[in-house]
Design a protein around this nucleic acid. Structure first.
Lengths: 222, 222
DNA sequence: GGGCCTATATATAAGTT
DNA sequence: TAACTTATATATAGGCC
């Protein structure tokens, strides 16, 4: 959309690419917000800018909150991932080195540490949620038994790249400031009170998030 | 967009709501794909249908692959989440009950077990990745020290709801079928070979994903 | 670099089959 | 039900400050 039709390929000009990223990022976040409101669903979104910065969106507040909906018995976690322990260790070590490099670069290029902190915390929360997902899914596997074939199995090569992260745009409709009435109002279960205590140890940065969300919200509200 | 302007609130009619979800889901996935191509970035997307089904999108193949970019030392994981152990246990138990109910419903309404399996596996992968994120971010915390304030801390109430999941639309530009040239071609690091070994134990279902992606891709290609 | 503007390209709500 | 069609609403590319 726009004055000219853009070819569907990487934008070569770095400036234009970053600009397009910024604009489209907002657009997609708006879309995600609309989807969550119109269809009364949760949407989570994770994006990386051309420069490697992380942005994320969660209609329901924190990504962790969304993912927690899949939590199952906690004692099953430890048994699960262990199979991959070695592979993971290896990968983790490699990426650790990469990350250390990126870390230094980031410290040089990105003075806004607060955003990094947000991303960090968001990631930790995400960890909880995904763990939860894994647990509930383990339960599912048990319930479903082994009636499933694996003919659809595919493995794509990984394209890992060194990256930095910064702003975690995690949006909530129920934060202290900018409480948007009507946003996700169907608390049709008994979990509403159990998760506010989730993170006394972790603090999520929502400044950028709220600003963008508030803006997007106003535009889409009516 | 459309014949009439839709009020930005929950669509009451269940049929319309589901229809809108389906259409907009495709739209947002297309947008995510465009963003990843135009800006040469990775995008991950997780959505739940009004009926609680899970859909996810990852420009780079598997969400785990994207998230692995943030992996750090594996030995730091255990120390992290432990603080929340109790809270988590409680939540997990509650949600477990909820989930068991949903499970039964799902078995009744959703005969397509394969999709559930996909979601399950995707979730497991996601678990690894998020763990990785948490690790790298822990490292970051160390590197960054405690120079950060917490005035931005906010906690939103959780709106957990019982959910089922089904199709995991995990898209890749490098899968066996439908290899879209030019999709994420900047392997600017040395990680390309290290992650393909990620899941001999886990198989991700990409049928639905590939179908949708191929379709979206054709439309956006030129 | 962020905002605003405007012409165009896209997405999509209803309607139709 | 899911696929098309079409009128409209939105998103956004390229400019300009």
């Amino acid at each position: 959309m726009g004055r000219k039709k853009l070819a569907m390929r990487r934008i070569d000009n770095p400036t234009s690419r970053q600009l397009t990223y910024t604009k489209r990022k907002e657009g997609i976040i708006k879309k995600a917000g609309e989807l969550s409101v119109l269809c009364d669903t949760d949407v989570a979104l994770v994006m990386f800018s051309p420069s490697g910065r992380l942005s994320s969106f969660a209609s329901n507040g924190r990504i962790e909150d969304i993912l927690l909906r899949f939590v199952d018995r906690p004692d099953e976690l430890r048994g699960g991932p262990i199979n991959h322990e070695e592979e993971l260790e290896e990968k983790l070590d490699k990426l650790t080195r990469k990350q250390r490099e990126s870390q230094e670069k980031m410290r040089y290029y990105e003075p806004n540490v607060e955003k990094i902190n947000s991303a960090l915390e968001a990631g930790v929360y995400q960890q909880f949620l995904t763990t939860a997902i894994q647990r509930i899914q383990t339960s599912k596997a048990k319930l479903l038994g082994s009636q499933l074939g694996h003919e659809r199995t595919e493995n794509a090569e990984v394209q890992a790249a060194s990256m930095q992260m910064d702003d975690a745009v995690s949006l909530t409709g129920q934060s202290a400031e900018g409480n948007h009435a009507g946003m996700k109002s169907n608390m049709d279960d008994n979990q509403s009170g159990s998760s506010s205590a989730a993170g006394p140890h972790l603090s999520l940065g929502f400044i950028e998030s709220q600003r963008m969300w508030n803006k997007a919200w106003e535009n889409m509200k009516y």
